[in-house]
Amino acid sequence: MATVAISGGTGLIGKALTGLLRQRGHRVVVLTRKPPRGITAFGSSDADLTYALWNVRKGEFPSAILSETDYIVHLAGANVAKGRWTKRRKQEIVRSRTVSGALIVEALRAGPCRVKGVISASATGWYGPDTGGKPFKESDPPADDFLGGTCTAWEDAISPVTTLGKRLVILRTGIVLSREGGALPAFLSSLRLGVAAILGDGKQVISWIHIADLCRLYVQAIEDPGMTGVYNAVAPAPVSNKTLVLALAERLRGRFYVPVHVPSWILRLGMGEMSVEVLKSCTADVSKAKATGFQFAYPTVGAAVADLLKDAR
């Protein structure tokens, strides 16, 4: 059994990952600024789920956990899809990832600790839009846009852990499909009214992943000492926006829905700069992750939708 500290552990992925780690017998320490009422504080018991206080803005890290922590999972970061990308919001998106990463690095550098490795989130926003060539591999350069720059700074902030002798794994994650939040509820909101809202022409390719597979990949990154470096964390069968929306519509509504294309100009009016991302194609290659022996439980969008919406009708 390992002890795993998770930054961003109260978010969508963090909660799901915490549950899976505990199922597998690991102990989880959630780094949080505002612990829930009645929580078990780190060091107060042998519980398999405890909480430790940190404050990124004040540069405060609970260094006491490092002598008992085997791995750190770094998920912290402001929600990219929440709100318009104003100058202030963009700064918050970047700083929430880079400052928290730097804080982890400094805590590890200060030591002492028994941490063996760090598994950090990143995103397929690293890559530029598809140009009709091969799917993006981990060695491809970052895009010359906001998300490309954000992901570069994000990964750069945590990468110094390798100079401290720690194994580093970075998972560039695509669109995460989950009943509990993320992109799926946004897709379903119009479908519940019988409208299948296809964004733009619907041809843009989405590299997606079922949250269960994403959490299993994080667990493998923790447990497999052979995993190191960057991996694309996406399902092996990317689909177009139209294909995904219609798959959801057919599962949720049967034949009782109306497909409606939302014009690009309306998306740009309502979402501003963020509309570029929802209209952009990104096909990420997952062969590196598969080469580790990882097997997807939900390799196709049909399998994922069937699971996620099995109780929806």
Rank of each mutant, 00 (worst) to 15 (best):
D46W: 07
A47P: 02
A47F: 06
A47R: 13
A47D: 08
W54N: 01
R57M: 05
E60A: 14
F61L: 01
P62G: 11
S63G: 15
L66V: 01
L66F: 15
S67H: 12
S67L: 12
E68N: 10
T69Q: 08
D70C: 06
D70H: 13
D70G: 00
Y71N: 00
I72R: 08
A76D: 09
G77S: 09
N79H: 12
V80R: 10
V80L: 09
V80Y: 07
K82S: 09
G83M: 00
R84A: 04
W85S: 01
Q91R: 10
E92F: 09
I93T: 02
V94F: 13
R95Q: 04
R95T: 05
S96N: 09
L103D: 12
V105P: 02
E106D: 13
A107E: 10
A110E: 01
G117Y: 07
I119F: 08
A121H: 03
T124L: 00
T124C: 06
G125P: 01
W126N: 10
Y127M: 00
D130M: 13
D130K: 00
D130T: 15
G133Q: 11
F136L: 00
F136G: 03
E138W: 11
P141W: 04
P141Y: 02
P142G: 08
A143C: 07
A143M: 02
D144E: 07
D144K: 12
D144M: 07
D145E: 04
D145V: 10
G148M: 12
G148C: 11
G148I: 03
T152V: 14
A153L: 14
W154D: 06
D156R: 13
S159D: 08
P160Q: 12
T162A: 12
T162F: 11
L164G: 13
R167P: 10
V169Q: 05
V169H: 05
L171F: 15
R172F: 05
